[in-house]
Amino acid sequence: MSTPETPTETAPTPEQVRRLPKVSLHDHLDGGLRPSTIVEIAAANGHALPTTDPEELGVWFRDAADSGSLVRYLETFDHTIAVMQDAESLARVATEAVLDLATDGVVYGELRYAPEQHLQRGLSLDEVVVAVEEGMRRGEQLAAQAGTPIRVGTLVTAMRHADRGLEIAELALRHRDAGVVGFDIAGAEIGFPPSNHLAAFDRLHAENFPVTIHAGEAFGLPSIADALHTCGAERIGHGVRIVEDIEFGEGRDRFGMPAATLGRLATWVRDRGIVLELCPSSNVQTGAATSVAEHPITALKDLGFSISVNTDNRLMSGTSLSREFSLLVDEAGWDLADVERATITALSASFLPFPDRLALASDVIRPAYAPA
């Protein structure tokens, strides 16, 4: 007999998707705050907001981000970062983020943020990281007590337009045994190639520390190639514009794959199983895709690319990981097997140690997707 936790129909319902265990790889801490928390902290520190009504503020963030421009999208972070400038607020935001993911059925998540953006009120880089990690661990404890256990790792991010990559890399290494599991660069892509931070990546590789890089969202194939071949990224944040190296034909081949001719970079990414951290709703907002239905994620999945589904910024997109999967089910024809495959792909590409990945897959994820 089936249960609400174990969907048996080909296309799972939104409630079934919410109950299923999921893995989140690309989620910005400063893009997932609760509007009520922003209002409370802003009132305490004197930061002016577009509105002090939490519901209206949530709508404002979504509307402001829904502009089709990555630059305009990034401007919404002025308000979230402004309320993340002291240790107490950072810890609170981190705790709430973990709890929100756990409530959505996420069993492992990687939350990323840029410590250099949280120094306006006198915190040091190390104090920022300590506060966030304390909040993360508190969130894990509260989630376990609520019966929704989750494990969370932190990705320390450097801003690509700044000149602190090596400094932030050293920061990540100092905290690698206290919850920081990887390194990232983020921010405006055009004019700021990943290789500007090559010294940071060389240092991280020398210390056997995992790296993912934002690439192929606002800028195209050269950004992805630079991240992979020059900087040694293990995953690509977004990477949606890899589709520019694919020429699609008509129909499908004898294996059921869409008829397509892949360029050399696309072939490299697919054949080596480089995981793309795709974020459907966010990509539509920033103009990297026209709609969820037409988002390249489905074609890439069908062509054998290693894809994961992510939220990017839950506040700005008014979304959750369950909602992203449900949109793909409703608008792009995904089924339960697609959801499971993307979840296992994300887990396999996570920066968790292999025994922990194996345990999550065997004990939590596979049983939930198995027929009752």
Rank of each mutant, 00 (worst) to 15 (best):
S317E: 01
G318Y: 04
G318C: 05
T319E: 07
T319M: 06
T319H: 07
T319G: 10
T319D: 11
S320D: 06
S320N: 02
L321Q: 11
S322E: 06
R323L: 14
R323I: 13
E324Q: 05
F325L: 11
F325C: 09
S326R: 06
S326N: 15
S326C: 13
L327N: 09
L327W: 08
L328E: 12
L328N: 08
V329R: 14
V329T: 13
V329H: 13
V329M: 12
D330Y: 00
D330T: 10
E331G: 00
E331V: 01
E331T: 10
A332R: 10
A332P: 06
A332H: 07
A332Y: 11
A332K: 11
G333K: 03
G333I: 02
G333M: 01
G333H: 02
W334I: 06
L336F: 00
A337Y: 07
A337E: 15
A337C: 06
A337K: 12
D338V: 07
D338L: 07
D338E: 13
D338K: 06
V339W: 04
V339S: 04
V339K: 03
E340F: 02
R341H: 14
R341P: 00
R341I: 00
R341Q: 14
R341K: 07
A342G: 13
A342N: 11
A342W: 11
A342S: 15
I344S: 05
I344P: 02
I344N: 00
T345A: 15
T345P: 08
T345V: 14
T345D: 15
A346F: 03
A346S: 14
A346Q: 03
L347T: 08
L347S: 10
